[in-house]
């Protein structure tokens, strides 16, 4: 099984603080993976490095069949290569309609001149309708995203990620601030997404991770602490020490 994303020996420090320390990580296609770890374990920095927002001090990040290095690519190029990212706080374009948000996210040429020539087609309209329906915003398509409720914005952002059709989806704490029913819904969605693409969920809610029922990677102080099924890592004495205190 060849890896879709392979991170090897990556380190990054900010003003002497080692956020990521010689971290290696790999994920295969159509895999669901949870990354857990206490605050400051380097989860967000890890996502920043993969998406190109932060350049690591050392190490290598490789992507896809040809093992292209992501380190020399910009955020936009990485996104176009097929890595989508869902932020912790919902970030949608609040001044624009749900439809415009989704159209922007639709998989299509991204260059300025290609976008200038772009016209809505029957296909694109149908796709936007489908996506809106899938995330429960079919009735709100003309509304401005800024008027949506917090939960609806979360869903709109997920809809935009779906529209992007990424091969790897990085999801940052999806369960934060959600009701129980919404969590249930989110779990189902993530599991379904993982059937067609790789999904990495960063979370520190153990209950939520248990529900995902997938392989778990535990980070601590920027390094890999343990990896395996949730039951396996929960039994690891190091993990217990980190989570329960010494």
């Amino acid at each position: 099984m060849s890896a879709l994303l392979e991170v090897s020996g990556v380190s990054k420090s900010f003003d002497g603080f080692k956020a990521i320390n010689n971290l290696s990580f790999a994920i295969a296609e159509r895999e669901l993976r949870a990354i857990i770890g206490p605050n400051g374990a380097g989860k967000t920095t890890f996502m920043d490095i993969v998406t190109g927002k932060t350049r690591p001090d050392s190490g290598e990040v490789r992507w896809g069949e040809n093992s292209r290095s992501l380190l020399r690519m910009s955020e936009a190029q990485i996104a176009r290569a097929g890595i989508g990212r869902k932020f912790q706080r919902p970030t949608v374009f609040e001044d624009q309609s749900v439809e415009a948000n989704l159209i922007m996210a639709l998989k299509a040429p991204r260059g300025p001149f290609a976008v200038l020539r772009w016209r809505p087609s029957a296909g694109s309209r149908a796709r936007v309708q489908d996506l809106a329906a899938e995330v429960g915003l079919a009735g709100q398509i003309r509304r401005k995203a800024g008027e949506l409720s917090h939960g609806q914005k979360q869903w709109l952002e997920i809809g935009m990620l779906l529209a992007q059709e990424p091969r790897l989806l990085l999801v940052d704490e999806p369960a934060a601030g959600m009701t129980l029913a919404e969590r249930e819904q989110t779990t189902t969605l993530l599991k379904r997404l993982a059937e067609t693409r790789a999904v990495v969920v960063v979370e520190h809610d153990m209950e939520f991770v248990r529900r995902l029922n997938c392989k778990v990677t535990v980070l601590h102080q920027g390094s890999l602490l343990a990896e395996g099924s949730l039951d396996h890592v929960s039994a690891n004495p190091d993990v217990i020490e980190v989570y329960l205190g010494r």
């Binding site: 900010f14 003003d15 603080f17 956020a19 920095t45 920043d48 927002k53 932060t54």
Partner: peptide, 8 residues
């Protein structure tokens, strides 16, 4: 000014 919070 350096640090994690002033990136971007």
């Amino acid at each position: 000014t350096r640090g994690r919070f002033v990136e971007g």
